[in-house]
Design a binder for these strands. Structure first.
Lengths: 127, 127
DNA sequence: CCTAATGCTTCCAGTAACTGGAGGGTCAAG
DNA sequence: CTTGACCCTCCAGTTACTGGAAGCATTAGG
């Protein structure tokens, strides 16, 4: 199948599939006589895999590692778990950061009258 | 004062202060005879303001708007509140997204044995 | 006064992961 | 044979810096 078929089948944008081919993340099965990228089921499965991993916020490099493990039937689940745990830790760290920001900013927003007058605790806090 | 003094006084990197000058966010007070950027207290205050706003995740463009309001003593606090509320909404949206990711990924990580065997619910989920 | 070490300048490149667009070849239908 | 939908490559732009190179300016030491 051509690239747009593969894109549709994997739920990615055509541009993205081409980009993944360029960076060697998911290479097409081959090229047609006229140079068109051709994709078959295994590639589409990989594209889908990457789409799902990306949705979890894994970086392209992490996806590369995960794809390798996906393909490797001799893998250790420990290796997968290691990558996923790192991502989970990142998520937790981000959550803590956002919670702090949320609480402080919510407090400031709440205490700002939001009328035509210039005095504003948000500006005071930043200034 | 020179740029590195202003950077130190505002808690920013010298490169960042120069960048802010380049994009017209916080312009230096002037230039010395030899072309050095010179900064005075008002600029340092603005740099500090931007640093604090950036720490809350406001974009450079938002900072531009906030700086304008900071400088405008005829401002309406409603305008400040509007920008801050948008940012707060973004934070909340991101929090919801991260919560979903966290819960799903935590579940997967927990259910993965993480040993030498290849079977792995994480890979199964993505594949 | 000379020199070496900072410090300042500009400009270019790279980061992450695409996205949009220009310019041009290919293919299937009518 | 032409039209329109595809496909190709390459370049630029996105965000907010950061690192580095080449080259003046300033300053402290000897």
């Amino acid at each position: 199948m051509n690239i747009s078929q593969a894109a549709k089948a994997s739920g990615l944008a055509t541009k993205t599939v081409r980009y993944y081919a360029d960076i060697g993340l998911v290479k097409p099965a081959g090229r047609s006589a006229s140079g068109y990228r051709t994709y078959t089921d295994p590639q589409v499965r990989k594209l889908n895999f990457v789409r799902r991993a990306r949705a979890f916020g894994f970086s392209i490099e992490d996806c590369r590692g995960l794809l390798g493990l996906y393909e490797d039937h001799e893998r250790s689940s420990a290796d997968v778990k290691h990558i996923a745990s790192k991502r989970l830790d990142d998520i937790k760290a981000k959550q803590r950061e956002l919670q702090t920001l949320h609480d402080e900013l919510a407090h400031l927003v709440k205490s700002c009258r939001g009328d035509h007058r210039p005095d504003c605790p948000i500006i005071d806090y930043f200034g």
